[in-house]
Computed example of a mutant assay.
Amino acid sequence: MSSLTIGLTGGIGSGKTVASDWFATQGITVVDADIVARKVVEVGQPALVEIAHVFGQQVILADGSLHRAYLRELIFNSTHAKKQLEQITHPIIRAEIIQQLAQAHSPYCILVSPLLFETDQHQLVQRTLLIDTSEELQQQRASARDQQSIEKISQIISAQMPRQEKQQRANDIVLNTGVIEQLYAQLQPLHQHYLTLVSM
C-alpha cells in the first residue's frame, strides 16, 4: 500500500482521464471511481439486485444488465431517487476503492473521481489535485466526446460542485486550457513533488 494517495478530480470535460492516464504511464497506480461505480452494478452484483428492488424491474434491461440511460434520467430529475441510489451504491463503491488503494504498489497512487469532494471520497486521500478548465471548454470537449448537446452538458455542469469551490478545496490545480503537451508539462513537476513527499 502506498503511503500517499492523491485525489484527482475535475468537472466533466476537464481532462481528468488524460491526466490520470499520464500518471499511469509513469508507473503510478490509478484507481478510477467511475470504473469502480460501473463494476459494482454489473450483473450478479448485490447492488444491482438492490437497485431493481428499490426502483422496479424497468431499470433492468432484457439481458439482465442495468438500464443506465433510464436510471440516469430518473436520478437527474428526482433528488429523492438520487439519494436512494447513493445510499445503495456509495458505501459499496467506497469499500471497493479502499480495497484497490490498499493493493497499490507504486510510490504513491491516484484516486481519480469526478465527485471526490461531493461524496467525501476526499477523506480517503492525503492531497487533492484539480484538473481545471473553462466552462466553455468543458462544454466543447464533453459535447464532442459524448455526442450530447451543449445544453445537456451545461445541465450536467450546473449539477456539479461549482468550479470556484473546487479551486478553493484543492491542494494543487492544473489549468488544462491548451494542447495536451502543455498539460503534461504541468503534471511532470507535480509528479516529482509527490515522489519527494513520499520520500520525506
Rank of each mutant, 00 (worst) to 15 (best):
L111P: 01
Q186N: 07
V41W: 02
Q155C: 14
L74H: 03
E165F: 07
F117Q: 01
V43Y: 15
L175F: 14
F55C: 06
H53Y: 11
D32W: 02
E96P: 08
Q99S: 15
E165Y: 07
P91V: 07
F55L: 10
V43C: 13
R94I: 10
M1F: 12
Q167Y: 08
P107R: 08
G178R: 13
E181A: 12
K166N: 05
Q126F: 06
I75Y: 05
V54N: 04
A19W: 11
L111C: 03
N171Q: 07
P114K: 03
A104C: 03
Q192E: 11
S134V: 06
G27R: 10
I6S: 00
Q58S: 07
Q26A: 10
I110V: 01
K83Q: 14
T25H: 09
D172Q: 15
V30D: 05
F55Q: 06
S143M: 05
L74T: 10
Q182R: 14
K166W: 08
Y108D: 04
E50T: 14
E165A: 07
Q186P: 06
H105I: 15
T133G: 03
P107W: 09
S158K: 15
P91C: 06
K39C: 08
A104G: 01
H122M: 12
S154P: 09
I6D: 03
V31T: 02
S3L: 12
Q100F: 09
D21R: 05
G56T: 15
I180T: 13
H122S: 14
Q168N: 14
A47I: 05
L71C: 01
V41H: 03
E42S: 15
I28E: 01
G13A: 04
I92D: 00
D32P: 03
Q26Y: 13
P46W: 10
A185M: 11
D120R: 13
Q103C: 11
M1W: 12
D120C: 13
G27K: 10
Q140A: 08
N171L: 07
H67G: 02
V36D: 02
Q99R: 14
L111T: 00
I156A: 04
K166Y: 07
I110C: 00
I150F: 12
K82C: 11
D172P: 14
H193W: 11
I153M: 09
D63N: 15
Y108W: 06
Q123H: 12
I97F: 08
L66P: 00
T133R: 04
V198E: 04
Q188W: 12
G178Y: 12
V59N: 07
V36C: 05
I156P: 04
H67F: 08
I51S: 00
E181L: 12
R163Q: 11
I93K: 01
L183R: 04
A52D: 06
P189H: 10
V31P: 00
Q155H: 15
P107F: 10
F23K: 00
V59P: 05
I6H: 02
Y108S: 04
